[in-house]
Amino acid sequence: MHALRQCHADRATAALVLAGDPGGVIHFRDGAVVAAHSPGAPGVGTLRVDDEARDLARAAMSDAAFAIAVGGIAHYALDESADVLPPALDGVRPDRLLREAAVRLAVLAASPCPLSPYRERLVPTGRAEPAEQWREIVAHATGRRTARDIAFVLGLGVHTVTVEIARMLGEDVLAIVPAAAVTGRAHDVATLRPRSDQRAAVAPTGPLPVRRSGQGP
């Protein structure tokens, strides 16, 4: 994360594009981080608005930093021509953002059953009754969704949801779907055949009514 510190040292006003899985973009203004976006974390527009709405932009930024850090980064580039959006909050020192991300990674690593928010898809085991605060997450664990996907559906932070799921894995409430499981279904392509067979099913109708001038309503 040398690049982040360098942006701070250079008082950069630019977008640091981190290409990876999922990667993300960190926006700097005068060396301070004013926004962070990642496909791995719900943005301000997706996060559920609650009593802490005032800090929504800040929460989204920290969550995006975690989402970038927990995934892989292949390479990065500094885009100085990018539009840096008007800041929604006062700038944050990159050091502070990195520390927060490190704490969040440590919390996940220390949980009973750490998992990737992006890879593992989850399904209820049915063996243990989920606690009240977990029901919402369990309801969306359909076997098709990862922790990240569930966070987007619920409008909750990806870190919060991933840590809760790690706990649920530990308590046998949720299980990880085997990676080789194939989903999807084939449709009856017989309907692509010509329709001549079905012609008899259409009831014959009489001639269409004819409109005569002067008699209409």
Binding site: R119, T183, G184, R185, A186, H187, V189, L192
Partner: peptide, 30 residues
């Protein structure tokens, strides 16, 4: 099914996929 699964695993945020004939009749869906 394997092609669709790979796409979903490689691109963050993909939720659903359908392969259909160009007249709108589904062939395979996930």
């Amino acid at each position: 099914a394997v092609e669709l699964r790979k796409l979903r695993e490689n691109v963050t945020g993909v939720t659903d996929m359908v392969i259909a004939a160009s007249d709108g009749i589904p062939i395979f869906s996930d």
